[in-house]
């Protein structure tokens, strides 16, 4: 069987999560989500149109009405999927992009909430993606709510989180409970390791399957067309991927 790089597993998982979307947007400095969206587009080629907007890209951005257009699109219900990271993410899927400690004089300051306080509410499929899987990132309760995982009844909330993907595994989010369930673990990791690295409580099924891996045809698409497309916006990331593939072949 062909060896598969950890980042290829992540990209393929994102492409699986994006099944069915028509328009997906990717924020700045997000090569893995961008690659996942590009793989989704490639997989659906000839069957359905997947439109992709990568913030900061010229080639992969068709908006003509300035930086407000992405949010307007989300408000109109046209944007199907988006990605959020987070300095902290808690068990209720609350996201903190602002800082650690008491606001406003936080001892660690992250950039800020960006569009999260709007897009989390309006985009039906928000995928939380954070590679670092540690108790300092996946916390019991965030210090600052940039965007809440769930809203009380009566609050306009067509959007929200569907999944949390890390370097170790994939969680599904159930907004009814609310809470996460461990869905699968990536190759080389296990449920016990994930339990030790996660600061919030979540549900674990009796048997946790391994995260599905791309088949040979998908892998060919990933290492060909997707890698080529990605290089326009993320040259450094693409070059590193190519180096790792060369090392894999050696």
């Amino acid at each position: 069987m062909t060896a598969i790089l950890p980042r290829e597993t992540l990209i393929f998982t994102i492409a699986r999560l994006l099944d069915g979307v028509k328009l997906v947007a990717v924020g700045a400095a997000s090569p893995v989500p961008a690659a996942g969206a590009m793989l989704r587009r490639a997989l659906d080629d000839g069957r359905r149109t997947v439109r992709l907007s990568v913030l900061g890209s010229v080639e992969h951005n068709f908006f003509t009405n300035g930086s407000a257009e992405l949010f307007d699109c989300a408000g109109q219900g046209r944007l199907d999927a988006f990605f959020l990271g987070g300095g902290q993410i808690d068990g209720q899927a609350n996201v903190n992009l602002v800082g650690v400690g008491d606001y406003p004089q936080t001892q660690v300051r992250w950039p800020g909430s960006f569009g999260s306080a709007y897009l989390y509410f309006t985009v039906p499929k928000v995928i939380l993606f954070r590679e670092e899987h540690t108790p300092r990132v996946l916390v019991e309760k965030v210090d600052f709510i940039s965007a809440p995982g769930v809203s009380p009844p009566g609050v306009y909330r067509p959007g929200g989180p569907v999944a949390l993907l890390t370097s170790k595994g994939l969680f599904r989010f159930d907004s009814g409970r609310p809470g996460f369930t461990l869905e699968s673990v990536h190759p080389g990791h296990d449920a016990a390791e994930i339990a030790a690295a996660t600061g919030f409580a979540y549900e674990t099924p009796a048997i946790v399957p391994e995260t599905p891996l791309p088949d040979p045809a998908t892998l060919t698409l990933l290492r060909g067309r997707v890698l080529d497309e990605l290089a326009e916006t993320y040259p450094a990331f693409a070059a590193e991927w190519r180096r790792d593939l060369a090392a894999l072949a050696a």
Partner: peptide, 21 residues
């Protein structure tokens, strides 16, 4: 900016992108 936040020497009006728009 981060140092000024930590020192409390600037006033913050944290927003979200579409609110500024």
């Amino acid at each position: 900016f981060n140092q000024a936040v930590k020192d409390g020497t600037i006033r913050l009006r944290d927003a979200t992108c579409p609110a500024i728009h």
